[in-house]
């Protein structure tokens, strides 16, 4: 475990806040967040339903601009979307007119990587997420869980420095969700990446995270950080797991 944890800071977030201006008032969604993420760390942003977790993720990924503060990835300021960051969206959002292969190789393709290299890469990641044999299927021919695997492979295949996952399993049924949690761990153990994962499911957070950042409700601020060093694979019913679960849930309840 410990030697995996490279102490390099890869992602840095300095005094970030976000206000949305509506016609009549200004709404502060994110209030002054400072965050540092180490290389290959699995960080879970955890908080109540409607807090600004997704907004925070959009800011980190460059899809939205900050009102104040800055985000740095590898010491370069993040100002717009770019391929050094990968996103797995909540709504899955595959290109329906492309096959599984077409979706996974999309990133390398638009970046002009030659056909042979990108096909090999895509095949590797398709196999990694367990979809070998489905390369030529279209998204509406496969199940929700499989679609999200494609989404993960697509983000991985671009080989970004950071992967952002915005409640990627929230649309799946409970069984598939457990399975996908195991899968994302297996994939991450095999292909270590820095992952920032958003969820409002405490079990999911505890199962996956190296570190859980507990957010308060609007305006979102960091309430507390938990370093989770339970051994993997984690057992949802172990005493330590349940104890942490209770503690974090209770702490979250105070934020509501």
């Amino acid at each position: 475990m410990e030697q995996d944890r490279n102490l390099d800071i890869i992602l840095k977030c300095e005094n970030v806040s976000k206000k949305f201006q509506t016609k009549h008032r200004t709404k502060e969604v994110i209030g002054n967040i400072n965050l540092e993420v180490r290389k290959n760390e699995f960080v879970v942003l955890f908080g109540p339903g409607q807090c600004g977790k997704t907004t925070m993720l959009n800011i980190l990924s460059g899809l939205e601009k900050t009102t104040t503060g800055k985000v740095f990835l590898n010491d370069r300021e993040v100002v717009e979307p770019g391929p050094d960051r990968g996103v797995v969206f909540q709504s899955i959002s595959l290109y329906p007119w492309l096959t599984v292969m077409g979706n996974v190789e999309y990133g390398p393709k638009v970046r002009g990587i030659n056909k042979k290299v990108r096909k090999e890469k895509a095949e590797y990641y398709i196999e990694l997420v367990g979809l070998k044999g489905f390369e030529n299927s279209y998204p509406n021919q496969i199940s929700g869980g499989m679609k999200q695997r494609v989404g993960i492979a697509r983000a991985y295949c671009n080989e970004p420095d950071v992967l952002f996952m915005d409640e990627p399993f929230s649309a799946l049924d409970a069984q598939t969700r457990y399975l996908m949690q195991e899968e994302i761990m297996r994939i991450w153990e095999k292909e270590k990446r820095t992952v920032i994962f958003v969820t409002n499911n405490i079990e999911e957070a505890l199962y996956l995270a190296d570190r859980i950042i507990l957010f308060t409700n609007c305006p979102t601020q960091i309430k507390k950080e938990y370093v989770i060093d339970l051994p993997r694979p984690r057992d949802y019913t172990s005493d330590d797991f349940l104890k942490l679960r209770e503690e974090i849930t209770e702490n979250m309840a105070h934020t509501l």
Partner: peptide
């Protein structure tokens, strides 16, 4: 679909 556009931008298009 807005998300598909975001997705493409994130992937480097």
């Amino acid at each position: 679909d807005e998300t598909l556009i975001k997705c493409s931008k994130m992937l480097g298009a």
